[in-house]
Each structure stands twice: as C-alpha cells, then as structure tokens.
C-alpha cells in the first residue's frame, strides 16, 4: 500500500504534531504522551475521550469547544496505554472529576480501567461510558459485548454539551449513558483498511462483494452478498436498525451517515438521499442529519448509518453549538 508516511511507528505522533501546528491557537499536545488537549480547559467536569490512532478525525481531533477537553491516543488501532490516559486526564481535569468516553473494545476497557484506578491515587474521580452502538457485533441480550463505531460521535457530542452546561459528574454521566443507550449503528464494508507500513490490507473482501456489519478493524459481519445499489443498501441498513432499536412512528431521531475512509462524499450523500424519505414514510421525525467521515479506518471503503433517538433532554444538548476543526454545529435555525 502506497502511503505518504515516514516511519510507520511514528505515524500517530507525527499526525498529532502536524495537526497541532495548524490549530495551535486552540490545542496543544499533552507533554510526553500522545494526547491532545484544549489550550484552556474550562472550570467544569472534564470530558476525555480516547482510542486507537488511525480512525481520524476520531478520536484525536474530536477535541474542542463543547466537545471533548482532551483525547488520549494509542498506536494505530490499539488503545492508549494507562499512562497516556492518566497524563491526558491530569492535563485538563479541574477538580470536578472526569467523564471518560470510548468505544467498547477489550483493549480500551482494560487500559481505561487501569487508568481510572491510577486516577484514584491522584484523587481524581472518574466515570466511564463505553459506547456500544454496533448492532451487528452481538445480539441484544449481550449488548455489553457490542463494539463502539460511529455512534461515538453522538455520545461524545451530547456529553460535551452536558459537561459544558455545568452538570455534575454524576449528572453528566447519566446524560451520556442515556445518549449511549439510544444510539444504534450498522455499517457495510466494501473493502478492508490497512495498517500503515504493512504491505497487505488487514483483511479483504472478494471483488464485487460487500459485507454488512463488518467492524472497522475487519471484524467479520453478519451478512456477505454481491454489491447492490445504494438504495437497497440503505434499505437493508435501516431495516435492521429499526428492528434492533425499536425506534418507531412518532420518535424523533438524529442521523449520521459515516464514511469509513475511502468512500466518497457523493456516495454518503446518495445513502442519505434515500435515508430521509425512508424515515419520513415511517412517521419517524428527523431532527437533524449529519454526513461525514468522522470515524474511519485508513483506506477502508464502506459506510454506516447511526440513529440517535432523542428525548427533550438529549435534544437540548444535541442542539448546543460546538466546534472542532472537523466537526461543528451552529445554533439551530428556528423553523
């Protein structure tokens, strides 16, 4: 795989360095570790996210106003180590505790749990919300086995607003859990991603075939089939999502069509074009629609659809403006 890199092992660090040079007014690197933090953390509950590198802009670059205060980043597709997490948290925590949000993977769970124990020694209180939105990754009875994918965006968006609004750690945690429990995603993969420096993709799909539910690290999905048109793909994804989530007539949702890295914006827009009338025809209210490649996997081709079911409280936090270089929301225009 041809890539514009130097040493493969240096990719995460050099990515952060380049990013910080462009946005130095707002962000700085956490000394000694692969962390990015806002320059001036506010006097509130800290929100720290984290995960493996290579999913950009998530997690590293989802730091910003009314979003995360800092991100702790690991090597490519590997969770950050406990020391990175602890140093990153300490760089933004202001005595009100820290809310830790990350995708539900064995590595992240182990490292963040270990970090939370170390934070106790520093008398920093923490609460953890693991995102498990991928409905394909385990049956509903084993929901805590599900992986976190594009739903990270919505959970983090809501949690960022909740902590910015001055909620206590307990309250912010409650709101973030509610957002997590109402976020559902399902994706389709067209081709596998690569690990920088490795010759071959981490996994492959036969020519002309797609796989529903495939994980962003190539974890096999639920159904493999011949490539079908965008509309049918969208129909399949939404059908499964509605079935799993129980979202129905009268509910109000936010949607995200997320690209996995090499899928173009036009393809994402074509999915969204179908998604909107499908929801409307079922009497499901669309509060907001997002299209973007926010959580990716290097050259992976494919996309996912995420639904966030709103209630009054979640909507209030969802509508709060936020800013980061690659994800932002303006104040909602009155209809």
């Amino acid at each position: 795989m041809k890539k514009i890199i130097n040493q493969p092992a240096a990719v995460p660090e050099e990515t952060i360095e380049g990013f910080i040079r462009a946005y130095a007014d707002d962000f700085e690197k956490v000394e000694g570790v692969k962390g990015i933090r806002v320059r001036t953390p506010k006097d509130k509950v800290a929100l720290v996210i984290g995960g493996g590198s290579g999913h950009e802009p998530m997690f590293a670059m989802f730091v910003g106003e009314n979003l995360a205060d800092a991100s702790a980043n690991g090597n490519i597709f590997a969770s950050p180590d406990p020391n990175t997490i602890v140093q990153t948290v300490r760089s933004v925590e202001r005595g009100k505790g820290v809310l830790l949000i990350y995708g539900n993977y064995a590595g992240d769970n182990l490292n963040f749990d270990m970090a939370a124990e170390i934070l106790e020694d520093f008398e920093i209180e923490s609460r953890t919300v693991r995102v498990w939105d991928d409905v394909a990754s385990a049956p509903k009875e084993r929901i805590t086995d599900r992986r976190g994918i594009a739903g990270d965006v919505f959970v983090l968006k809501i949690a960022g607003a909740a902590t910015a609004a001055g909620l206590s750690l307990e309250e912010a945690y409650r709101v973030a859990v509610k957002a997590r429990d109402n976020t559902f995603s399902l994706g389709v993969a067209l081709s596998g991603g690569t690990i920088p420096g490795e010759e071959h993709p981490a996994f492959t799909l036969p020519d002309g075939e797609i796989e529903f539910g495939m994980g962003v690290h190539g974890e096999p999905g639920v159904k493999r089939m011949k490539l079908i048109p965008a509309d049918q793909t969208t129909d399949f994804l939404l059908e499964k999502l509605l079935e799993d989530s129980g979202i129905h007539r009268g509910d109000s949702v936010c949607t995200l069509v997320n690209g996995l890295g090499s899928t173009t914006l036009s393809e994402l827009c074509i999915i969204n074009r179908r998604l909107a009338p499908l929801l409307e025809s079922r009497g499901i209210g669309i509060h907001d629609m997002e299209i973007g490649s926010y959580i990716t996997c290097q050259e992976m081709a494919g996309a996912s659809i995420t639904l966030l079911r709103l209630d009054e409280e979640l909507q209030k936090y969802y509508d709060m403006p936020c800013w980061s270089p690659y994800y932002q929301k303006r104040a909602k225009k009155a209809k």
């Binding site: 090597n75 590997a78 969770s79 406990p82 020391n83 590595g107």
Partner: peptide, 12 residues
C-alpha cells in the same frame, strides 16, 4: 511494555 503498547496485549 505497559507504557508503549496499548491495547489489551499491553495490559495483559
């Protein structure tokens, strides 16, 4: 190992 690897392998 703990401070360099990350991932589940790093901890384990």
């Amino acid at each position: 190992m703990l401070n360099s690897m990350g991932g589940a392998s790093g901890v384990v």
